[in-house]
């Protein structure tokens, strides 16, 4: 009888061992109201008043993605999207729009104050956005934001897609797959190569990623098909997603044209600060102007 129970337990474990931790990979922070400059949470940096955005250029809006209401903020003039160049910012895994607001403001100063429109948004489950985060959701929600821009007249040849950390996945994905718009420029900051390399690098061994995760994120392969030129920022002291192998694998696989800015001493989250605010802005501006 004991043997039977033991065998039953083992068979049960094997049969029902579908426990996956993927849903826990996401780190969504919820909020009922965006505070933007009044956000008092921990930030990597805060910009001075010279980077303030006039209130009439900050547009909070929502759209739907697979039936879920998701929220974004457009910095600029929504009535001129049809003729403006727009930077679509795909944020990372931690926090929500408030956490990335300073970064969005930086992008709104590329080439001068409000030269380019900037759209920052929260994926499903983040900030005010409804639903639960998932890998599919970050692609679909990014797609919904691209559609929102397209509905206001934006065309792909005036779209810059910028991905930071986890946001490099949707940015790379929509640069290499057919979507509402095909971005003309791709900017990645602190990208990871793939779920598989993340597992293998963390484990030291060549493990199949299925041992750990169902995530299909594969920036290093997708980017081979990217049509947009690439600007890649990566800190040399990034201890979460190391430049080597992650950033270098992504950069090496991009067909070009491309430029890498490996920022000496920068970690995963402080590239703009360590590089220097002005240098960071200049790199992006020169990149956009060059291609």
């Amino acid at each position: 009888m004991r043997k039977l129970i033991a065998v039953g337990v083992l068979v049960g474990l094997m049969t029902f061992s579908c426990a996956r931790l993927d849903s826990f990979l996401f780190n969504p922070y919820k909020t009922d109201e965006y505070k933007l400059d009044d956000y008092d949470g921990k930030l990597q940096f805060r910009l001075g008043p010279e980077f303030d955005i006039p209130q009439d250029k900050i547009h909070l809006f929502s759209t739907t993605s697979q039936g879920y209401k998701i929220w974004g903020i457009y910095i600029g003039d929504t009535t001129t999207i049809s003729s403006d160049t727009v930077i679509l910012y795909c944020h990372g895994n931690t926090g929500h729009i408030d956490y990335y607001w300073q970064r969005a403001k930086l992008l709104a100063h590329v080439g001068g104050k409000l030269r380019y429109g900037v759209l920052i948004f929260d994926y499903r489950g983040y900030g005010k956005s409804e639903g639960e985060p998932s890998e599919e959701a970050i692609y679909e929600d990014t797609k919904a934001m691209m559609q929102w821009l397209k509905d206001r007249g934006l065309t792909g040849d005036r779209l810059v897609i910028y991905g930071y950390s986890m946001g490099t996945a949707p940015a790379t994905y929509w640069s290499s797959h057919e979507g509402p718009l095909t971005p003309r420029w791709l900017i990645l900051e602190a990208p990871f190569a793939s779920a598989e390399l993340m597992v293998q690098d963390g484990a030291y061994f060549v493990l199949p990623k299925q041992y750990v995760t169902d995530l299909e994120i594969n920036n290093a392969e997708w980017i081979k098909n990217a049509k947009a030129p690439l600007l890649l920022f990566h800190g040399t002291e990034d201890k979460l997603l190391a430049l080597d192998p992650h950033g270098k694998a992504v950069f090496d696989n991009h067909p070009g044209p491309k430029k890498a800015v490996f920022v000496e001493g920068a970690t995963h989250s402080d590239v703009p600060v360590i590089l220097g605010i002005e240098a960071y802005i200049s790199e992006i501006y020169n990149f956009i102007k060059s291609y």
């Binding site: 931790l21 597992v199 690098d201 963390g202 493990l207």
Partner: peptide, 9 residues
């Protein structure tokens, strides 16, 4: 991820 990959390390 630490649990996942550390668990395998």
């Amino acid at each position: 991820i630490a649990i996942l990959t550390g668990g395998i390390l």
